[in-house]
Design a protein around this nucleic acid. Structure first.
Length: 587
RNA sequence: GCGCCCGUAGCUCAAUUGGAUAGAGCGUUGGCCUCCGAAGCCAAAGGUUAUGGGUUCGACCCCCGUCGGGCGCACCA
C-alpha cells in the first residue's frame, strides 16, 4: 500500500493530543457501555493544573476533530472522553485491512536491528522442560519483531565451554560405552558427566584428572579438542532434531567458545580502565559509586550497612567466567550487527547477573551503550501440580522430546475420539499440530514473570483459553468455506463489508485491534498480550458464529459475512503463527 | 540477614501498566443441536485482590509495614 495507515488507537490519540496540546493516552474502553475507546487526559490535566476535569474535557472536546472516525464523543464519569466509532468508518477500515498483507500492522518508521539470545542449551546435555520457556518466548518475540518489519538476528548462545568438559573428557577416556553412545549419544554423555561428577566428590584423584583434562583442552591439546568437537557435533544433532520438531530456527549458533580469543583482551581493558581490580586473587568489578546505593548492582545491604557485591571477570585460577564471556559477546554483537536492541531470554534467577553485566558494559563502552537497549527478558519456573518444579513421577527432569511425544499422543487420542473417520495419517498430523500448539500456548499465555503450573488435563482439555480453542475457531471457519463449495455458492472476494448485526460489529472492531496487540508485545516483551487478544477474537467470532448464519444467510447478507470470516481466519492464522503455533484444516 | 519476584473466585490464569461495576476457563447449577463442526454459545452462583496503613477525583497496580511461598546473594552458567 502506498500510504501507511495509522492504527486506530494512534489516530485517536493524535487527534486528542492535537486538541489538548499535550501527550495523551487513548485505550480501548473497559466496557462497551462506555463506547469503544476512552481517554483520561482531562483528568490527568486537571490533576496537574488543579482544574475541573469535566470542564477541561469539554474544552478538549470542543477542539477535537474525529468526526470522520467517531459517531459520538461523550464526557462521562469523572471526566472521561468516550469515543464511539462510526460504523461506516469501521467498515471501510476493515476493507483497508483486508487489502493489507500485514493485516493492519503498520511499517515501523525506523526499522530496528534486534539480536535475540534465546534457548541456549548446554552441549552434552539432553534438552528438557527447562528450555521451553526461553525457546518459545524467544522464538515468538523473533517472529513478531520480524513481522512488524524489524531486522532480527536469532542467536543460540549454546553452552559449549566450561568446567563440565573436564569431567566429560575424563569420562569419555575412561568410562565410555561405545554401543550406548551409538544408540543415544546424549544419554551416554549425560551418564558420563553424572558418573564422573559423583566420583569427583568421592575421589580427589579423579577430580585432579578431570581438571587436568580441562587444562589440556583449554591449552589446545589436539586430542581433547577433537573429542570436544565430537561432543558438540553429537549435541548439535539433537538440537537440530528438537528445533525442527518445534518449528524453531536460528540465524547463528555462536557458542560460548566462540568468544575465547576475546576474553583476555576484555579483562585487560577492564583492568587498564580501572573498572576491574584484583581481590582475593580474582579480578573483580566493584561499585564506582555512580548509582544510588539501592540501585547499585555491586552493593548489597547487610546488617552492618552496605557492602561490596562484586562481579568476577576472572577467577583466581586465571579462567574467565560467564560475565567475561557475556561482555565479549556484547562487544562482538555490536561490531557485527550494530543492534539497536539485544534481548536475553533467560529465567529470572539471572536478574542480578544481567544487571551487573549491563552496568559493566555501560562503564566499559559508554558511547556504544547509549546506542543499544539491553533487555533481560526473564521468566518464572514451570511447576508440577504439586507446586514444586515440574518433574517426572520418578523425580527426574522431564525430557523435551518425551514431553512432545506425550502431548502428541494425548492429542491423538482425543482427535481419534472426536473424528474417527479421518485417515490415520491426517489424525497424526492434526495431533502433532494440536499437541505442540497446546504446549506452546500454555507457556505463552500466562504472564512470563512468575511461575506457572504445568497440567496436561488443563492444557489439553481443549476448552477455555487454550490453543485448541483458538484452532477450533479457525477450523470452524475453514469448514464454512468447504461447505460453500458443496452448496454451490460462489464466494467472490472483495465484497463491501456491512456490519448489520451487533455480533458483526463486535467482530469487526475486534479485528481492528490486531495491530495494537502485535505492537504492544515489542514494548514490554510479553507475547501473552497477543495470546489474550487472539482468545478474545476467537471468543467474539464464536459469538458471531452463533448469531449470524453464513451459508444459510439471506443472499444479501452473505458476502459481507464471508468477508468477516475470511478476515478472522487470516488474523487467527497469522496471530497464532506469531506465537509459533500452526492451525489444522480439520480437527 | 539483605535483595528480587510472587500472593486475585475451590483450582488454573487475565486485568489495555493509575481508570468507571476486577474478567475468563475448569469445577458446580440451569438453558441452547430437524439449523454453517456442541472442541461451541447463553445464563446463575462464586471476591474485603494475603494483611494493616498511606498517597488521590480514582489503587490489584505507586509508597511504608506485616504474614506466607519461590529464587538469588564473588570464583557454576
Amino acid at each position: 500500500m502506498e500510504t501507511i495507515p495509522l492504527l486506530l488507537e494512534a489516530r485517536l490519540r493524535a487527534a486528542v493530543e492535537n486538541a489538548a496540546g499535550v501527550e495523551a493516552n487513548v485505550t480501548p474502553a473497559s466496557d462497551t457501555r462506555f463506547g469503544d475507546y476512552q481517554s483520561n487526559i482531562a483528568m490527568l490535566l486537571a490533576k496537574r493544573d488543579k482544574a475541573n476535569p469535566r470542564a477541561l474535557a469539554q474544552q478538549i472536546l470542543d477542539r477535537l476533530q474525529v468526526s470522520d472516525i467517531c459517531s459520538a464523543v461523550e464526557i462521562a464519569g469523572a471526566g472521561f472522553l468516550n469515543f464511539r466509532l462510526c460504523k461506516k468508518w469501521v467498515q471501510s477500515r476493515l476493507e483497508d485491512v483486508r487489502a493489507d498483507s500485514q493485516l493492519g500492522v503498520p511499517e515501523p518508521q525506523k526499522p530496528r536491528s534486534i539480536v535475540i539470545d534465546f534457548s541456549s542449551p548446554n552441549v552434552a546435555k539432553t534438552m528438557h522442560v527447562g528450555h521451553i520457556r526461553s525457546t518459545f518466548l524467544g522464538d515468538s518475540l523473533a517472529r513478531i519483531a520480524t513481522f512488524v518489519g524489524h531486522k532480527v538476528v536469532r542467536d543460540n548462545h549454546i553452552g559449549d565451554w566450561g568446567t563440565q568438559f573436564g569431567m566429560l573428557l575424563y569420562g569419555w577416556k575412561n568410562l565410555l560405552d561405545r554401543e550406548a553412545l551409538a544408540a543415544d549419544a546424549l544419554a551416554e554423555m549425560e551418564r558420563l558427566y553424572k558418573t564422573v561428577s559423583a566420583q569427583c566428590k568421592e575421589t580427589p584423584e579423579v577430580l585432579e584428572s578431570a581438571r587436568n583434562e580441562l587444562v589440556k583442552l583449554q591449552s589446545g591439546d589436539l586430542e581433547n579438542l577433537s573429542l570436544w568437537l565430537e561432543m558438540i557435533h553429537l549435541s548439535q544433532g539433537q538440537f537440530d532434531t528438537i528445533y525442527s520438531r518445534l518449528g524453531v530456527r536460528f540465524d547463528v549458533t555462536y557458542g560460548e567458545s566462540y568468544y575465547n580469543s576475546r576474553l583476555k583482551p576484555v579483562v585487560a581493558e577492564l583492568c587498564s580502565l580501572g573498572i576491574a581490580k584484583e581481590s582475593d586473587g580474582a579480578m573483580c568489578v566493584f561499585s564506582d559509586g555512580a548509582l544510588p546505593q539501592e540501585q547499585d548492582p555491586f552493593l548489597i545491604k547487610d546488617k552492618d550497612g552496605w557492602r561490596s557485591n562484586p562481579a568476577l571477570v576472572l577467577k583466581s585460577d586465571g579462567a574467565a567466567n560467564y560475565t567475561t564471556t557475556d561482555l565479549a559477546t556484547i562487544q562482538f554483537r555490536m561490531e557485527k550487527w550494530k543492534p539497536d536492541e539485544i534481548i536475553y531470554v533467560t529465567d529470572g534467577r539471572q536478574q542480578l547477573h544481567f544487571r551487573q553485566l549491563f552496568a559493566i558494559y555501560r562503564r566499559w563502552q559508554p558511547k556504544q551503550a547509549e546506542q543499544v537497549r539491553l533487555a533481560h527478558v526473564w521468566f518464572g519456573a514451570i511447576l508440577g501440580e504439586d507446586g514444586k518444579p515440574f518433574k517426572t513421577r520418578s523425580g527426574d527432569t522431564v525430557k523435551l522430546a518425551d514431553l512432545l511425544d506425550e502431548a502428541e499422543e494425548r492429542a491423538y487420542t482425543l482427535v481419534t475420539e472426536k473424528n474417527p473417520a479421518l485417515p490415520e495419517s491426517e489424525r497424526r498430523e492434526i495431533a502433532r499440530i494440536i499437541g505442540l500448539g497446546a504446549v506452546k500456548y500454555a507457556d505463552l499465555q500466562p504472564n512470563r514473570q512468575g511461575d506457572y503450573v504445568f497440567s496436561w488435563d488443563k492444557m489439553l482439555s481443549f476448552q477455555g483459553n487454550t490453543a485448541p480453542y483458538l484452532q477450533n475457531a479457525y477450523v470452524r471457519i475453514r469448514s464454512i468455506f468447504r461447505k460453500l463449495v458443496e452448496a454451490e455458492i460462489v464466494w467472490d472476494p472483495g465484497a463491501p463489508i456491512a456490519l448489520v448485526d451487533p455480533a458483526e460489529e463486535a467482530l469487526g472492531k475486534k479485528i481492528l485491534q490486531f495491530g495494537e496487540a502485535v505492537q504492544q508485545v515489542l514494548v514490554d516483551h510479553r507475547p501473552n498480550g497477543l495470546a489474550n487478544y487472539l482468545y478474545e477474537l476467537a471468543n467474539t467470532y464464536h459469538g458471531f458464529y452463533e448469531a449470524c448464519p453464513v451459508i444459510k444467510a439471506e443472499p444479501a447478507l452473505r458476502p459481507s459475512r464471508l468477508e468477516l470470516c475470511d478476515l478472522t481466519e487470516r488474523v487467527l492464522k497469522t496471530g497464532l503463527g506469531l506465537l509459533g503455533i500452526q492451525v489444522p484444516e480439520r480437527m
